[in-house]
Amino acid sequence: MKPLETRLARLALKGDQRAFAEIVDLYKDKLYHLAYRMTGNRQEAEDVVQETFLRVYKNLDRYDENQKFSTWIYRIATNLCIDRLRKRKAIYSLDAESSDHEGLDGYAMLPSDGRTPESELLLSETQRLIHEAIATLPVKYKSVMILRYLQELSLQEISDVLDMPVTTVKTRVHRGREFLRRKLEHKL
């Protein structure tokens, strides 16, 4: 018997709206969490989740049942997040260090997270520091780290989602981990 999601996807393809609603319920929190960590912004996270489900709905007939449904839906959501981050980067060039403000990159020059509603739900200083450290990860490490740590995907699954070799995923996990360590080691 096929996995639950695959059966739901089939029903949804035949026009069963309730089956699709079940898919939404199964994945909305996971995708929201993913998108929120990727974009660092609740509104954008909602937009990404909504767009992801819309794409899933429109492309149900292209879903290949040989791959896991979760891999497919994570791929769509991750790509949408990466697209947004790239567009944003093109506008602000956040990673470029500014010569006028020594040691500060574009992220530091955005309105501080500490005053925006984004951090209102962060309970502690520790959470805020980690949230910021994740936000400053370069995109290519960020997607890997989030899938690995916050979605608890295996290295193989991440390699399927991001369509890159497992060895590359591994290298990125290692570099991402080192990046976070350097950001956090003197603060925690």
């Binding site: 929190d29 929201y32 909602e46 309970l123 959470q127 980690i130 740590y149 956090l184």
Partner: peptide, 14 residues
Amino acid sequence: RTDAFVKAMPMEKA
């Protein structure tokens, strides 16, 4: 420690 902290980040609900 880094690993543990990142893993401990609470799940954000939609």
